[in-house]
Write a protein that binds this DNA or RNA. Structure first.
Length: 106
DNA sequence: CCGATGACGCGCC
DNA sequence: GGGCGCGCCATCG
């Protein structure tokens, strides 16, 4: 399994109307390469299956997007995620991503 | 193999 | 609170 595939697997779990952060994704797959996560999403071959636009920066900013940040914002707002001044309320829309492989130690 | 780059994160000024 | 710099990991040249 490639690194990118793992990123997609985790990102794919983000429900509509919610968002997550690169840090959360990286932590979910067990890596500290936050930047690598972003790169994987940039080269995301899976279209709507992997909602890469639902992944934002940990500071609440939009972050980046292949088609342009504005487009990203528009898509998010369209899904119900309210955005003000290029910022998202992580406290409200942030969702915890569960690790794709690691179990919760029963 | 080494060097540079990137949709980031955090510490410091 | 805003801006700047360094560090992180994976991929590409």
């Amino acid at each position: 399994m490639k690194f990118a595939e793992r990123v997609y697997g985790v990102t794919k779990q983000i429900p509509r109307g919610k968002v997550s952060t690169y840090k959360a994704v990286a932590d979910a797959i067990g890596t500290k390469g936050y930047r690598a996560v972003g790169q994987a999403l940039h080269t995301n071959p899976h279209a709507p299956k992997v909602p890469c636009h639902r992944v934002v920066a940990s500071d609440g900013s939009i972050g980046g997007f292949a088609l342009g940040t504005k487009k990203k914002i528009l898509m998010l707002k369209r899904e119900g995620v309210n955005i003000h001044n290029k910022n998202i309320d992580l406290q409200k829309y942030f969702v915890r991503l569960k690790k794709e492989k690691g179990r919760e130690v029963p």
